[in-house]
Simulated assay, not measured.
Amino acid sequence: MKKIRIAGAGCTLVAALALAGCSSGGGGGSGGGTPAAKDPTTLSTSDSPMGKILVDGKGRTLYLFTSDGKNTNSMKCDAECVKEWPHMKGKPKAGDGVQANLIGTTKGGGTPQATYAGHPLYYFADDHKAGDTKGQGIDKIWYVVDPHGKAIKKAASSGGGGGYGY
Rank of each mutant, 00 (worst) to 15 (best):
S46W: 03
D127N: 13
N71S: 04
H87R: 10
T115S: 14
K91S: 10
A79L: 05
T115M: 11
K129E: 06
G135H: 01
L121K: 02
G135C: 02
H119V: 02
H119T: 04
A94R: 00
A125I: 07
P92C: 11
D78N: 15
K134P: 00
C77N: 07
D126G: 01
T106H: 12
D56G: 05
V55P: 05
N71T: 01
L64N: 12
D127A: 06
T111C: 05
C77L: 07
A94F: 08
K70N: 08
K76G: 12
E84D: 14
L121F: 02
L62I: 05
A130K: 10
L64H: 04
P112Q: 09
K129F: 00
K76S: 13
M50S: 13
T115I: 09
Y116H: 12
K91N: 07
A100E: 15
S67Q: 07
L121D: 00
G51S: 06
I53Y: 10
A117C: 10
V82E: 13
G109T: 14
Y116Q: 10
R60H: 14
L64M: 15
G51E: 03
E84S: 14
D139K: 04
K76A: 14
D47P: 08
F65Y: 14
A130G: 07
G137P: 05
P86Q: 03
T61S: 15
T72L: 02
L54W: 11
G118Q: 09
S67N: 09
G109L: 13
K134V: 06
Y116N: 09
K89I: 13
G90N: 04
P92N: 10
T61H: 04
G104P: 09
C77V: 12
N101F: 05
I103F: 06
K76Q: 14
G59K: 08
D139M: 01
S74H: 13
K58E: 12
D139Q: 08
K134W: 01
K52L: 13
T111G: 06
P92D: 07
N71L: 01
T66G: 03
T115G: 06
D47N: 15
H119S: 11
G95K: 05
G90K: 05
D139H: 05
M50D: 10
Q136W: 02
T72H: 01
G135R: 06
G118V: 08
T115L: 11
D78K: 11
I138A: 02
T111L: 07
G131W: 02
Q136V: 08
L64I: 13
L54N: 09
G104R: 12
H128S: 10
S44W: 03
I103Y: 04
G110L: 11
L102W: 04
Q99A: 14
D126W: 11
L121S: 01
I53F: 05
K91P: 06
G131A: 08
G69M: 02
Q136H: 06
